[in-house]
Amino acid sequence: MPNGYFSLILHAHLPFVRHPEYPEFLEEDWLYEAITEVYLPLVFIFQNLHESGIKSRLAINVSPPLCEMLSDKLLETRYTLHLENLIELAQKEVERTGESEPQFSDAARMYVKNLTASLRLWNDKYNRNLVNAFRQLQEEGVLEIITCGATHGFLPLISTTEAKRAQVEIAVANYKKHFGKSPRGIWLPECAYEPGIENLLKDAGIEYFIGDSHALLYGEPRPRFGVHAPVRCPNGVAVFARDVETSQQVWSAEVGYPGNVVYREFYRDVGWDLPLDYIKPFLHANGERRNLGLKY
C-alpha cells in the first residue's frame, strides 16, 4: 500500500485584457508572454508525455478570463503577429551577439529555435486555440481541468452572497461552454476561503476546492494530517490546501527557484538593455521601451 499521494495542481489565470480600439496594447503582452513561456510549452509537454505512454495525471485550473482570451480570434491573430515579430528580433540577435557579445550567442540561437517551433505548433498543431488543446488532453485522461472565480474575485471581500454566488455559477457556466461538461473542482481566487463558501460551491455542483494552508490548519476540528490530506466540509465538499514549502519553492526569491543564479533574470530584457534605435522596429508605435521577451 502506498504511503501517500502527491497532487500536482497548476493555477493558470490572467486578468482579462482585450482592446480592439487600439492596434496594440501594452497589457495584452502579458497574455502573449504567458502563451509563449507557459501555456504552449505545457500543452506540448503534456501531449508528448501522453503520446509516449506516460501517465502524467495532474490537475490545472484554467480561469474563465483566460479561457475567453485564449479562444478570442482577435487575440489569436495579434499573438501570431507578436510571435513573428519576436522571431525576427531573435534572428537579428543571433547576428549581433555573434559579432559583439558571443557569450549570449547560444541563448540567441536557442530563442530562434524555440520560437520558430512555437509558431509551428501554434499554427499547425493547435490551430491557434489552446483551449481546445487543453480540452482534448482532458478528454484523453491526461489532465483534470478545474475552474476559478468568474473574474478571479476575492470571495471573502465580496459584499453580498448573491455576488459571490455569481462568481461561482458564471465560472461553472463558462467551464461548460469551453470544456463541454461541469467542473468537479475549483481553485478559489487567491485561495481565499471563509465559512459558507462551501455551500455556494455545493449548490453549483462543485465537489472540491483548493484553498490556502490556513483555511485548513485553522479549521475546527484541526485536521489530523495538516495540509497533507484533504478534508471534507460538513456538507461533503472536500478541500485541498496548498503546501507552504512547495509554494515557496515556486514563488520565493530568497529560498525558491526565482532567486537561483542558474535561472534567467526575468526583469533583464533586451527591450531595456539594448540601444533604442536597434530595438525600435520591434516596439509599439509609440516607441516606448517595454519587455520584448528576450532575456539573457
Score class of each variant (00 low, 15 high):
E21D: 15
E21M: 10
E21Q: 14
Y22A: 14
P23T: 08
E24F: 04
E24C: 13
E24D: 14
E24G: 05
F25I: 06
F25D: 12
L26Q: 07
E27R: 07
E28G: 04
E28M: 05
E28W: 00
D29M: 12
D29R: 10
W30G: 10
W30V: 11
L31A: 02
Y32E: 07
Y32T: 05
I35M: 05
I35H: 00
I35V: 08
E37A: 12
E37W: 08
V38Y: 07
V38K: 08
Y39D: 02
L40Q: 02
P41V: 07
P41E: 11
L42W: 05
L42N: 05
L42C: 10
V43P: 03
F44Q: 08
I45R: 15
I45F: 11
I45W: 11
F46V: 07
F46C: 08
N48D: 15
N48G: 15
N48S: 14
L49N: 04
H50F: 06
E51D: 15
S52L: 12
S52H: 06
G53L: 15
I54C: 13
I54H: 12
I54F: 14
I54N: 12
K55F: 08
S56F: 09
S56Y: 05
S56Q: 09
R57N: 15
A59S: 15
A59Q: 07
I60W: 02
N61W: 05
N61D: 14
S63H: 02
S63A: 12
S63K: 01
P64Q: 08
P65C: 13
P65N: 11
P65W: 01
L66T: 05
C67E: 06
E68P: 10
E68S: 12
E68V: 05
M69I: 08
M69V: 10
L70G: 02
S71G: 13
S71R: 01
S71K: 07
S71L: 07
S71E: 04
S71D: 10
K73R: 14
K73H: 08
L75P: 00
L75T: 00
E76H: 10
T77P: 00
T77S: 13
R78L: 06
R78S: 04
Y79E: 03
Y79K: 01
Y79L: 04
Y79I: 05
T80N: 04
T80P: 00
L81S: 13
H82A: 02
H82F: 09
L83A: 08
E84S: 14
N85E: 09
N85A: 10
L86Q: 01
L86R: 01
E88R: 05
E88A: 11
E88C: 08
E88Y: 02
